[in-house]
Write a protein that binds this DNA or RNA. Structure first.
Length: 386
DNA sequence: CAAACCGGGATCTGCCATTTAA
DNA sequence: TTAAATGGCAGATCCCGGTTTG
């Protein structure tokens, strides 16, 4: 990886010494110069013609084009890679194909994360094996690479990855969670060990601060409910905890229960977003004549109210209210807010059609799977007694 | 038996800024 | 000085069904 800087020196100016010692490595790929993009501002005021400082490796470009890589995209993302003299695009492609990736997937991976072509075969092999500690098949890994090439390629430190996996494993998440963690939040993998450790320790500290009995358990609880947590900064999580503490006036044990439970999902929201959602929820509830205590209860029992943006939540509530449901009923069964507005609208219509009475029969019909709801409607239609 | 309770599953990257290495 | 490595951010739900309960 390191033997690479020679060519530029050749084209460039100084560093002739470098040239000397590297000349043995000279490679075919030097062809022409692509355009300079900057004029050299400072240095020599003299008038020697400035050689282009930045030249792309033309044969590399050609290769990439042939492979179907979106070179424009690659250039935009990691321009430096295109200037490298030695790259391993062929090796990478072959490697990935041997793992079952199509040419199209390979091209897309390189387009989105060009640095991938700087990895050596040995490196790739090792890294793949490490990923295979968690994933049972190559195909699974390919899917993830296709989704998020950066997660696999951004770091070149296999030793770190290994330690990281050991660490993650040592948390004793159950295998299912570990698998899900890395499937859905693969960036966790390429975090440094230190970063992951910091978050875990931070969570332990929080637990202890809140008077939790078992701080080791806490990160597990949070992670299994929110596998994205390790891709967030501790700063963000800390701020969110404070936002919730102060805006809801929660005490320690309430906070602990919240985060160990369903509240974990909300911990990773951006701070602004959380604040905004809280404020608009509060406004909305006040406009519906709810008490502060109602709002608190709602959030504690169903923290996911804070997840949808103001418009989504508001329109959902409006639909329900317009359909003849009271805000009190919603506060009792907030899970009805789980479903999409479209879904809610459709169900309200169907229920109206069969003359369903929410006051008499409650609203939990709305909180059921499609299948169960359909069955329910059928029953209601068959026996329109009431 | 149906309703209610409850937890789980899917999903989440792609960019920018800063620091570090060569 | 450039490129590589790394940290961090914004974005913004919906659905299903096993088990318990009545």
């Amino acid at each position: 990886m390191a033997a690479v800087s020679g060519m530029r020196a050749l084209l460039g100016l100084h560093r002739s010494i470098m040239f000397q010692c590297c000349s043995g490595l000279t490679q075919v790929q030097l062809k022409a110069t692509y355009l300079p993009r900057g004029l050299c501002s400072s240095d020599t005021k003299g008038n020697e013609p400035k050689l282009p400082v930045n030249t792309e490796n033309e044969s590399l470009l050609e290769n990439l084009n042939l492979m179907g890589v979106d070179v424009k995209m690659a250039r935009q993302r990691q321009p430096g890679v295109l200037r490298k003299t030695f790259t391993n695009e062929q090796g990478l492609a072959q490697f990935l194909k041997s793992k079952g990736a199509s040419s199209k997937v390979v091209a897309s991976i390189i387009s989105r994360y060009p640095r991938a072509i700087t990895r050596s075969l040995e490196h790739l092999d090792q890294r793949w094996e490490l990923w295979r500690n968690i994933f049972k098949t190559d195909a699974e890994i390919v899917t993830i690479l296709d989704r998020s090439p950066e997660s696999f390629f951004r770091s070149s430190d296999n030793a770190e990855l290994k330690k990281n996996i050991t660490f993650l494993t040592s948390l004793e998440l159950d295998t299912k969670v570990l698998h899900r963690l890395l499937t859905t939040a693969p960036r966790t993998f390429s975090n440094s060990l230190e970063l992951n450790r910091q978050m875990v320790e931070f969570l332990e500290d929080i637990c202890a601060e809140l008077g939790g009995k078992n701080p080791q358990q806490f990160p597990k609880a949070v992670i299994s409910r929110n596998v994205y947590i390790l891709t967030r900064s501790t700063k963000r999580v800390k701020t969110n905890i404070e936002i919730l503490r102060t805006s809801l006036k929660l005490d320690d044990s309430e906070l602990l229960a919240l985060f160990q439970g369903p509240g974990a999902e909300i911990l990773g929201l951006s701070n602004q977003y959380l604040r905004k959602n809280f404020n608009s929820l509060q406004q909305k509830m006040v406009s519906l004549r709810c008490q502060k205590a109602d709002i608190k209860k709602l959030i504690i029992s169903y923290p996911m109210v804070l997840y949808p943006g103001p418009n989504t939540l508001s329109s959902k509530l409006d639909c329900l209210l317009k359909g003849g449901i009271t805000i009190t009923q919603i506060l009792e069964k907030p899970k009805v807010l789980d479903y999409s507005t479209q879904n809610i609208i459709g169900r309200l219509e169907e229920l109206k059609r069969v003359g369903y009475d929410f006051q008499k029969n409650g609203i939990s019909v709305l909180d059921s799977s499609r299948k169960r709801f359909a069955a329910k409607i059928e029953r209601l239609a068959a026996s329109p007694d009431d």
